[in-house]
Design a binder for these strands. Structure first.
Lengths: 232, 232
DNA sequence: TGTACATCAGTGAACGCGCGTTCACTGATGTAC
DNA sequence: TGTACATCAGTGAACGCGCGTTCACTGATGTAC
């Protein structure tokens, strides 16, 4: 059934809402229960379509999972790539700072989804994908989006303070982990924050909170002459 | 079958190696493939025991999963609790620092497992457990280990710099996320570090790298009179 | 304009498979008298 | 010391269930002549 997969892009009648209904339902159910724990029956019944429609339109459950990610990541990487073009073309003395690079990600992640709820949902999916140990999904994502990822990393390393490359490497992973966790657990964490501190804030605001934390972590141990107290 | 579960602790003949063989196999396979993706058949065949032995000794797959966590977390929390006693009894002017509190966790986590490999395995399991959305596991862990967790948090907050409580709350979650991610992905990340930078280091060393990063992140934006450059 | 055919989205029912769990059973060990 | 019984760990085979996938089919729409 892999060949019939092509129809959905060649024949993009807006009436083929079945495809997007399936994607919507899959996105939410996967985020709530995980990939293995979500059955095609629960997806198709929530979407109000026939069970066989998933295999008809996507070929298999695997390919449906990939399609859910593609729908978010394609426009995200497209936008990110354009912003990276601009950064790369800047002169030597107007290179982006660490904070610029971090805010850039927040900007583009919040730009793609239709709602805050959808952003939270997708962050959960990203974290789930990362936690998959030996699945097809991780390989698929690495392969598909490697180019943009590597361009971003190059600029980020350029903005990082001078220190051994391996130290930068580890700190970038600390940042990545903090982001994935915070955003994928956002709804839970926000609820606790509201209950315990009475403070209600949108996900984007939480993401902005991460920037000074991460920038300071990256710069830790680095002697900053004259600018020790103005770094965020 | 829940009642037959009690035997394994009352009758602790060392010959009941079936139980620990099952736990060993389950620990590794769960970490490699996730809970839902690991069948009892694969666990029992790797352990070299009969399929029905899991239900006989543990009652159900759910309870096996919980037992895997208990085996690590019980001694860990026991040790941690004793260290917390000591910290809590200290005088006002010898309170533990942020770094003390972070190193404390590293100390006790590395003390429990038999090998580095087992530590990595267990960190994967912890991250998997956290990523479970609405499972029995998260509730079970929260309920069972809440007390020690809350005592640790109280001391950590006491060691944190003066800033709005909600800011501390978010930053602690950033730390938690960075830790879970780094440690659960440790084998992969270590392999990349060795390939790209030729540096081979044990997991404990990576965990120690996190301490200054996190401490600096926690203190970001905080004015540090006179001690600005000696904080790690 | 009318007819024949091809293409497509979508359907209903069934398929085989692997899963967690159950159950009657065996054999070894410990205990009571 | 010997016998009867209870308790326990472990077993082999089967159970029913939910899963992803398949397949023959329908009906609507587009195209060729």
């Amino acid at each position: 059934m892999a060949s019939s997969n092509n129809h959905s892009s060649t024949r993009t009648n807006t009436r083929s809402s079945t495809v997007s209904r399936i994607l919507d339902a899959a996105e939410n159910l996967f985020a709530q229960h995980g990939f293995a724990e979500t059955s095609l029956r629960s997806i198709t019944s929530q979407a109000g379509v026939n069970l066989a429609a998933v295999n008809y339109h996507f070929g298999s459950k695997k390919e449906l999972i990939q399609a859910v990610f593609t729908r978010f990541l394609d426009p995200f990487c497209q936008r990110l790539s354009e912003r990276l073009d601009e950064f790369e073309n800047r002169g030597k003395n107007e290179q982006p700072t660490l904070e610029d690079m971090l805010h850039l990600l927040v900007d583009e992640m919040t730009a793609v989804p239709h709602s805050t709820a959808q952003l939270e949902t997708f962050m959960r999916l990203l974290a789930l994908a990362y936690n998959q140990t030996q699945g097809h999904l991780k390989k698929y994502l690495e392969l598909t989006y490697r180019d943009v990822f590597e361009r971003y990393m190059k600029l980020l390393i350029g903005a990082a303070p001078t220190m051994p490359a391996v130290e930068i490497y580890w700190r970038i992973n600390f940042i990545l982990g903090a982001s994935l966790f915070t955003m994928s657990e956002a709804p839970t964490l926000q609820a606790i924050a509201e209950r315990d501190y009475g403070i209600q804030e949108p996900l984007e605001s939480v993401m902005r909170r991460m920037v000074p934390f991460m920038a300071a972590g990256m710069r830790s141990g680095q002697v900053q002459l004259g600018q020790a107290l103005q770094q965020d």
